[in-house]
Design a binder for these strands. Structure first.
Lengths: 332, 332
DNA sequence: TTGTACGCGTTATCAG
DNA sequence: CTGATAACGCGTACAA
């Protein structure tokens, strides 16, 4: 690939002039610009970002660490991030962790080695977040945040979403509510559970611990749990799932028992499952403002990259939306 | 961020020794290695890939250009690519084109500016492919390939998939088959249509042009078309959709007319629609070997990067799989 | 086993 | 408006 020297030689100007044509065209005569540009075209010249990065100490790249690109929620989010990043002149490095903390740590280090200007991360382990803070890298946390930590983050208000979904169930007359939750380590899980509990207490409804299960956010665990729950003597009349994978597991379990939603049991959950708009019954769910989540995160990160002295960290909670479909029955 | 000089100074060795600890540890005494490594840890030192890239003329990055990360087919594919790339020590730059040829061209140029070692592209325009060939960049085309062009590619055998799906319909007694296709520009579209036509001819079944429609691979166009088709005097008994978006459009149209699959009309299509495993009826479809598509493409690209003199290009067609579900009825 | 000098492709600085 | 020179952080060749 042609270098700036090739261009300079062929255009019979100095290397500096070529550089200026690219970066400070107003300091170069129109005639020279034209001549140089023609040569650049002839040679298919592209200025080397790597050389440029070395001297400018900026790579114009953003590293993105996420747990699973196959998850609809995350890939939609990435799509919006990539769009805004590109509009601002940044290219995105993307890696999957598959929820593996070791991979996550390695990836973070790889990104630092590539000298990305900033990192957007949907973290799994607190360790990598701490590492990033210590290394003083521009970082924005997404979705899974740690409160009381001095770092930018953008997330949905998981607590409020859970409250609204729970109150919706209660409003439909449900008292016995099964909960499919995670292990209680990640922020969204904790917050959603807190929202559920508070809503139940506020309405003076007893929470039975036998209805609340840790399904690790996984489809097969949810399948087992729901199969159990519904075969027990006193089954819940409604099930609240904390993510879309577990919702799918629940649907499969219900259907394999020969039961129907919402006739035999109601089902609501966090996030929309794929295909929800085509099939019946549509599942009532909490919709997170994904596009906004991406736009805000990118904007905050780029602002910090371009203005590093700004000390105050931004902590943004976006409002979730309750989308009512046909998966919840009224009970007496 | 600490540089190799900082490490050298603090460890009281020369810069070269530090470099060797990283790249040729066998040429350094165990004691020195230990000392240097400790300092690297203390400083959180990560060798600069950008400086390293400049001298090695290799960035250890792969650029990926794809039309839409939200499409299940593409994001599953990316997931597999990223995995294999990472295992081989490469980091991925990912950008979305949203099927915009101008964006695609810009992205390709951006990647070249970043001096990626190679490019994986699901191309929309032939222009960007030609540009890459002229620039002699290591490139592997995915899914949408141009035959008779001297470049590596990996794709599914679209022709055979269409033949099998069509023969399956014919075997179930269908004669009047509606086809939702694209504009006839992209390779998969052309090949699938050729497969459909050949299968019909081979079985001596007349193809009615009023049953074959260009829906631009878009959901809403498919919706309109299917609505029309089924309201006409002599509607098809089965519909063959060329991608999952159009399949979704067809499902919505059928359901909005109050009809049922497969009782009133059969529906089959290329690629699995999201949620297909949970809902009834499952749609009979052609499944592409996505994981293999990613693994092969990545392997070929990396082989070419690491062994550029290999002249012969690899053109790989993978076999698709027919997945039979419940969306196709037998007719007399 | 360890160190010195140079170059990778670009921009900043200073001089003309 | 244009050009010469140094520097960015690292690896290679050669020397010690």
């Amino acid at each position: 690939m042609a270098t700036i020297h090739d261009v300079a030689r062929r255009a019979r100007v100095s290397v500096m002039t070529v550089s200026r044509v690219l970066n400070k065209p107003d300091k170069v005569s129109a005639k020279t610009i034209k001549k140089v540009k023609r040569v650049m075209d002839e040679l298919g010249y592209q200025p080397s970002q790597v050389a440029r990065s070395l001297v400018k100490r900026r790579t114009n790249t953003i590293g993105i660490v996420m747990p699973d690109i196959k998850n609809t929620f995350f890939n939609s989010w990435f799509r919006s991030v990539e769009k805004y990043a590109r509009l601002s002149g940044y290219t995105t490095l993307l890696c999957n962790t598959d929820e593996d903390p070791e991979d996550e740590m390695k990836l973070v280090k790889t990104f630092l080695a590539h000298r990305v200007d900033g990192i957007l991360i949907v973290p799994h382990s607190e360790e990598s977040v701490k590492y990033l803070m210590k290394a003083k890298v521009n970082t924005v946390l997404i979705d899974r945040v740690y409160e009381g930590i001095d770092i930018d983050f953008v997330a949905t208000d998981h607590y409020e979403g859970a409250v609204r979904l729970t109150e919706y169930l209660i409003g439909s007359g449900h008292r016995k509510i099964g909960v499919l939750r995670g292990p209680g380590i990640l922020f969204p899980d904790i917050e959603r559970h807190r929202g559920f509990s508070d809503a139940m207490e506020k309405n003076k409804i007893e929470i039975f611990s036998r209805y609340v299960h840790n399904c690790e956010f996984m489809e097969d665990k949810a399948f087992e749990t729901v199969t159990q729950l519904l075969q027990d003597g006193d089954p819940p009349t409604a099930i609240f799932s904390f993510n879309s994978l577990m919702t799918i597991g629940a649907i499969k379990a219900i259907s394999s028992l020969g039961l129907r939603i919402p006739r035999d049991v109601s089902l609501v959950g966090y996030d929309e499952i794929p295909g929800n708009e085509i099939f019946t019954p549509g599942i009532t769910h909490i919709k997170q403002p994904i596009e906004e989540l991406g736009r805000n995160a990118t904007k905050i990160l780029i602002a910090r990259i371009e203005n590093p002295r700004q000390k105050l960290k931004q902590n943004i909670f976006l409002k979730p939306e309750l989308v009512i479909r046909e998966s919840c029955a009224s009970v007496a």
